[in-house]
Design a protein around this nucleic acid. Structure first.
Length: 323
DNA sequence: ATGCAGGACAGAT
DNA sequence: ATCTGTCCTGCA
């Protein structure tokens, strides 16, 4: 299937948005692959691109659908899910016009053309990925998410490889926290180092208990589908109650997991960039920058922070602000 | 090798 | 309301 939308798939995949780890890149087909469920049928999505104005979607399913009506219905469901995940129905050219009207923001367009929100396949994955990202590097939290999928996620074998879904909260809730705990439950005693199917070994560090608690919360009490029905303010107040979720992580969850585009996730880099652009490089607190950004950018806030971050990264501004 | 980067939290002001 | 020290790991 062809999609005629302005998007840079590679950039979108590799921009470190905390909705999920980047999809597996298949060298043979030059595609980013991931498994999703459509009507409970596992579908391997394969997304490839050689032109910024379009991309192709190929997919694999376990069996053959011989009913052409069913086939059409199935494909339309896949299409709408792909459009949702890559935020294709967002009017990005309108956003570019907005950026170009602000001299501080205008330079970002050239560096980020085609960068779109990478929305969560699974909101729970976005919650855990965002919690894992705090006080952490992109490389480390993405490895954590890949490990969690491999160890606790449902496995699906396709001709082009094995893929895993992110586990539901009920599964993650009963995961071992440490090597020691995993070892205790094992009859044949091996060396402690050989126990790697525990949360700590996924590189979560002290965030293990946050992940555990969030899993328990969404298994026993909360339903993350409720967030889709709330206003941004309601959702923010609710999500920030989770241990390990502060303002920045809350905004990441709401933006990348639930598509609240008015969120303005403010980390130290956004703080530095915004201070440089709008406050004459004064030291303005993260809290104030967040409020300023939400106020100034409104419904564009989420996209603006995404663009500012990558603009700073690629233009050398980040390097400059480091000192 | 020691030190630092990265958000949230608990405790103190 | 805002500040400080601490948490864990990977990388200079």
């Amino acid at each position: 299937m062809e999609f005629n939308d302005l998007i840079n798939i590679k950039l979108t995949q590799e921009s470190g948005q905390t909705s999920q780890a980047s999809w597996k890149f298949d060298e043979n087909t030059s595609s980013y692959n991931n498994v999703i469920l459509i009507d409970n049928i596992p579908v391997l999505l394969k997304v490839s691109q050689d032109n910024i104005n379009s991309f192709s979607l190929d997919y694999e399913i376990p069996g053959v659908i011989d009913d052409s009506m069913l086939n059409k219905y199935f494909e339309s469901k896949i299409t709408s899910e792909v459009r949702r995940i890559f935020d294709l129905d967002y009017d990005i050219n309108k956003f570019y016009k907005y950026l170009e009207n602000d001299e501080k923001l205008a330079p970002s367009v050239d560096f980020c053309k085609g960068l779109r929100l990478f929305e969560a396949v699974d909101p729970f994955e976005a919650i855990i990925a965002s919690i894992s990202s705090s006080n952490n590097s992109i490389a480390r939290w993405t490895n954590t998410i890949k490990d969690i999928k491999r160890i606790w996620g449902d496995e699906f074998r396709f001709p082009s490889g094995t893929y895993y879904k992110f586990p539901p909260s009920e599964v993650l809730m009963s995961a071992y926290e440490t090597k020691e705990e995993e070892s205790e439950a094992d009859d044949e005693q091996r060396k402690l180092e050989s126990y790697t199917n525990n949360l700590k070994s996924c590189g979560l560090g002290y965030r293990v208990k946050y992940v555990k608690e969030a899993s328990e919360l969404f298994s026993l009490e909360a339903d993350f589908n409720e967030f889709f029905k709330m206003s941004y303010d309601e959702a923010f107040d609710e999500i920030i109650k989770i241990k390990g979720v502060g303002p920045k992580v809350a905004d990441c969850i709401l933006l990348y997991g639930f598509n609240f585009k008015e969120a303005f996730p403010t980390d130290v880099w956004i703080k530095r960039i915004m201070s440089y652009l709008y406050f004459n490089n004064e030291d303005v607190s993260v809290k104030r920058i967040r409020e300023f950004g939400m106020d100034k950018f409104g419904d564009y806030a989420g996209y603006v922070q995404l663009y500012l971050f990558h603009y700073a990264r690629k233009s050398g501004l980040m390097y400059k602000l480091k000192k």
